[in-house]
Write a protein that binds this DNA or RNA. Sequence first.
DNA 1: GTAGCTGCAAATTCTTTGCAGTTGT
DNA 2: ACAACTGCAAAGAATTTGCAGCTAC
Lengths: 139, 139
Amino acid sequence: MERTTRQRVAIRDAIAQAGRPLSPQEVLAAAGAQVPALSLATVYRNLRLLVEAGEVLSVVLPGESARYETSQHPHHHHFQCTRCRRVFDVHACPGNLAHLAPAGFTVDDHELTLYGRCSDCQVPARRGAKAPARAPTAR
Amino acid sequence: MERTTRQRVAIRDAIAQAGRPLSPQEVLAAAGAQVPALSLATVYRNLRLLVEAGEVLSVVLPGESARYETSQHPHHHHFQCTRCRRVFDVHACPGNLAHLAPAGFTVDDHELTLYGRCSDCQVPARRGAKAPARAPTAR
DNA sequence: GTAGCTGCAAATTCTTTGCAGTTGT
DNA sequence: ACAACTGCAAAGAATTTGCAGCTAC
């Protein structure tokens, strides 16, 4: 990653400003606003380079393809709403979890995902209830 | 999932007896020992049905395809060694994490993955050091 | 007997890669 | 200048699906 290309700048900025993990398609949509001819292949190539460089982290949730977010944000976790499938950042952290590992193991890091209902999906689904779509484009 | 077919029995048994999360390919290999003509498509179809029926849970770790394990095992978490990439079960649990979520959110469940070095990979890699392969078949 | 289930192969979807042309430095 | 980078299209890999035949009940 030696050069500063328009594409790379756009991709880096899109992720830095998103405030939530973006999928490759979402990165393409966001960065593509700056660089119209941006190709998905370039997005993938840069995501890999940025992850290798430690600028970006990948977030994986069950049944979904990988999302990417800045490593600049402080340590945090994620919450996925089981109804609308959106992913939110959780800035709280249970703290030191090293004692959970078996004897002889060393814990360097951890990842935590909470599942439940976000504030928009509190009421159990009922006919005609006002609520967000179940799988909105923006996650 | 109305009938008890040989294929389904073999797949269910393979997962129940594995003691660790299996990938679809591993399920095919294990269950295929009982039902030689077993096809990968059938494995995928049954994994989905078993997950929907709540008999099986899917486990997803970054950069790896989904693994499946029995839901019969008590609530537990996972530990992935950053060196040999193997996945271990962790039976400890930090407990109630509901308070970590933002106000207005309801937490029903959580998933936790610890990262670090397993007991076999404690010594930082050095030339000629005795240690397991970095990416063994069995994870 | 018949609907559910299976195997096979084709179709999808997601991600990676080869290559020739473009562009930072 | 020239190697890194990009876009396009083709290649791969993982998962899903259509369909005709098999089989549990």
